[in-house]
Write a protein that binds this DNA or RNA. Structure first.
Lengths: 132, 132
DNA sequence: GCGTGTACGCACCTTAAGGTAACCAATGGC
DNA sequence: GCCATTGGTTACCTTAAGGTGCGTACACGC
């Protein structure tokens, strides 16, 4: 049974994974679609260097403290960002994207570009569906 | 302000979109994270031709009728699959993937492949994080 | 002395997603 | 007659996601 069910080459690769590895792969891809994770990661990618928590929150418009904390923790756990704490008062914490995080964004970019280019086709399909 | 916040080339493209178009682009990408949509689409891609509802449900293990109906409707609305109804009793409905649907899977495949190849790096990162 | 700024953790509430199960229509087989 | 078939729809319930707001540490400027 195909685990990924995607195209053949990908399928062949996925067959070599254990169930746990397959689940993790799926989880990583799922994270891309997460409402905040990808956005947060790309903000860090766009910065010149490390960013403080509140600076990130400024740029990821509409995110709550709680959600940003959670997103950053997940990204850190997966090795996509680093977190450096300074023992100061008031506290200072700096986040930075890692090489793997950049790699990940590079994988997503063509997909996003394709979606942006195809947006008119989706609009047309929806108009047709909704109209009749 | 960058709308996508992704890499530069992608960013430049996204700047040319209206807010509605940008939101739709995001929505399309977000659909990838959906528990069932991508799986359903890939099942249809793997079939030789059109598939009946119940055949799809057999292959997408664990999905409920309700969720499959919803997933297929969304995919149809976005022009990724077609739905053909036959006025028979018992009813017969056939679903098939469209060229745009195949395009979309082709965009996702490299990303998925990368994630599968990188799975051990994620496991290592998590082990380090969880361990302390 | 007293408010201000920082990066959270925690408790609380609201909303949404998703699963289960029952119901439907018309026909053919027993 | 009675039941199974097929592709749904609907009502109901449980779980999870996500937002709001409060508490916290203490050094600084006024």
């Amino acid at each position: 049974m195909a685990k990924s069910g995607l195209l053949e080459t990908c399928d062949a690769l996925c067959e070599t994974l254990t169930d746990a590895e397959d689940a993790l792969t799926r989880e990583i891809v799922t994270r891309l679609a997460d409402k905040w994770s990808l956005w947060t990661l790309s903000v860090l990618a766009g910065a010149a260097g490390p960013m403080r928590f509140s600076r990130v929150m400024d740029q990821v418009e509409g995110i709550s403290q709680k959600s940003l904390t959670k997103a950053l923790r997940q990204l850190e756990r997966d090795g996509l960002v680093t977190r450096k704490m300074f023992a100061e008062v008031p506290p200072r914490v700096e986040y930075a994207i890692t090489p793997i995080g950049i790699e990940m964004l590079e994988q997503v970019a063509p997909l996003w570009t394709w979606a942006a280019k195809s947006v008119h086709r989706f609009q047309a399909a929806r108009a047709k569906f909704d109209g009749g």
